[in-house]
Design a protein around this nucleic acid. Sequence first.
DNA 1: CTCAATAGTTGACATCATCAAGTATCAGGC
DNA 2: GCCTGATACTTGATGATGTCAACTATTGAG
Lengths: 145, 145
Amino acid sequence: MNYNAHVKPGSPDSCEAWQLMVQLFFAQRANLPPLAAELELSPAQCHVLHLIEPGRPIPMGQLAETLACHASNVTGLVDRLESRGLVRRRPSPADRRVKVLVLTQTGSRLRTLLLDRMTTPPDTLGRLSVSEQRALVRILTRLLE
Amino acid sequence: MNYNAHVKPGSPDSCEAWQLMVQLFFAQRANLPPLAAELELSPAQCHVLHLIEPGRPIPMGQLAETLACHASNVTGLVDRLESRGLVRRRPSPADRRVKVLVLTQTGSRLRTLLLDRMTTPPDTLGRLSVSEQRALVRILTRLLE
DNA sequence: CTCAATAGTTGACATCATCAAGTATCAGGC
DNA sequence: GCCTGATACTTGATGATGTCAACTATTGAG
């Protein structure tokens, strides 16, 4: 038994901040299914669509790594997206084992729609002052580095 | 066709902030499966465990609402958690149709372990100054209101 | 050229999630 | 009391998500 299991790294403030982040994360997690359903997508498909940027082909393996899931799972996800005409597999010129994914026109439009809806800020964000909003932008930018 | 579909409510700053939040959200979403696997849980089970606070029984229906999923899905999720001895169904004294969920000792310990790991702040958070961390706490608190 | 490693697919299987239908209970009106 | 409609949960059917092991094709090192 590890009696130090409850001792966390990081300052008390950073722990408190991250606890709130986890709260927010779970709240957002519950938000995704209904939002996805409006576009006839699943949460996982939204995640994939979010990761394929238009004009920036991505190898399937890299997608699996970013999603932190098994490669064979990506095969199925892409199968369904491709059968809906949102995505296309293309051979990689550099390595014939690799297939890269590109968005179709339809896929690109749907992705824009999805990101548009997801990134519409909740009311609570609008109640912050402008300086607070800017502080948040600055802080989040550094968190994502 | 709604030609204003791309016009977002909220100030430019709040939109930018929320775009970053969505980035963070997807990154965290990819983080959950490996973390859950360490505890032999699925992401969905983590979400459920997070929502059942020790000593605070919650009706199954309320769980379905918070998860934004169908009631029958909760039945299956709870079946598996109960068969692992993490959760128990108990009849509600107020309404015999309702079953409330309580954590077992094991479930409570596992939940603590889970939240402990999830709320361990990433390195990037520790690189912020203390005043920035406090500002983040203040802002996130208001976002969750 | 051989051989281990890598990228992706396939099939088997558990979980997640929805829906429609069913049972039990509740709450209101008669 | 007794209907009747609504609510809480379960069941069974079905599709999506996810893992694993085994497979093919390709790469790259020796």
